[in-house]
Design a protein around this nucleic acid. Structure first.
Length: 260
DNA sequence: TATGGCCTGTGG
DNA sequence: CCACAGGCCATA
């Protein structure tokens, strides 16, 4: 699921279902999470959840005592909220709240991670770039962040320290919208093309966000222009979509209308 | 920059 | 059986 729009949707969902309730119990349901989960989790028990907010691809669950639970979904994480104390399939962590509301971290691949920032602690210095949906992000700023990067633009978009929230699917989609060849060295992009790229990113993210309300488990894959469409006609020019490998990840693009 | 690791599931 | 999967980190 989780690039920026899916994480945003998940955060809104959890916030709507659980904010205002008090955390009663936490259980880790998989050895991998037991290993990596914060040992001091008990300090959060008894605190009221104030809000759930997205920060880049992280979610921050802020509690009334000042503690913050920080959750990253990685590849396959998601929330399921139930009124029954019965673990859904692939539930890896259980957060029991007042009023008989249960939040489950569902994550088939068990790559998701949970951290705790205790009250008063400074946010960890994992710097990320500007949020992909930051309305103040402009071409000059983004282009400056590309300036030292000779790597292909597709891979640079996946670097969260350059711009936060873009993942493998929406990087491909945004580049298709902007008509930019994913192999283009990032530093080569003109100001105009970076402007187009920002438009492509916003378009892609907003479209995906608009699919989030119903909390469908999967993003509407049928809305994608290039991702996973190898061998299918480009929606603009009918050229067959190509798939290449960049940095061990698949990239889909149109060889004709996406140019260097 | 490239590779392996984390984990499990799905589809060819 | 193998390839691959929407992310990220550690290592050489």
């Amino acid at each position: 699921m989780p690039e920026l729009p899916e994480v945003e949707g998940a955060a809104r969902y959890l916030n709507a279902q659980v904010a205002g309730r008090t955390l009663r119990r936490v259980a880790w349901l998989h050895p991998s999470l037991q290993r990596t989960a914060p040992p001091a989790i008990d300090t959060v028990i008894g605190q009221r959840l104030l809000r759930v907010a997205r920060v880049a691809k992280w979610q921050e669950l802020s509690f009334a005592g000042g503690d913050v639970l920080i959750v990253h979904f990685r590849m396959t994480g998601d929330w399921a909220v139930t009124t029954r104390d019965e673990a859904p399939r692939h539930a890896r962590a259980h957060f029991a709240f007042s009023g008989g509301v249960h939040a489950w971290l569902v994550d088939p691949r068990v790559l998701a991670r949970v951290q705790l920032r205790v009250a008063g602690a400074e946010p960890s210095p994992t710097r990320t770039g500007p949020d992909a949906l930051d309305p103040t992000l402009d071409a000059a700023t983004l282009r400056a962040r590309f300036a030292a990067r000779r790597a292909p633009i597709k891979q640079v978009l996946l670097d969260q320290t350059v711009i936060a929230g873009v993942g493998n699917i929406y990087a491909a989609e945004a580049l298709w919208h902007a008509r930019i060849d994913p192999r283009t060295p990032a530093q080569q992009l003109s100001a105009l093309r970076v402007t187009r790229l920002i438009e492509g990113i916003r378009w892609t993210m907003e479209l995906a966000l608009s699919d989030q309300g119903r909390h469908q488990y999967r993003t509407a894959m049928d809305r994608l222009a290039v991702y996973d469409r190898e061998g299918h006609p480009c929606l603009r020019c009918t050229t067959l979509i190509a798939r290449i490998s960049q940095g061990q990840r698949s990239t889909y693009f149109c060889r004709r209308c996406q140019r260097t």
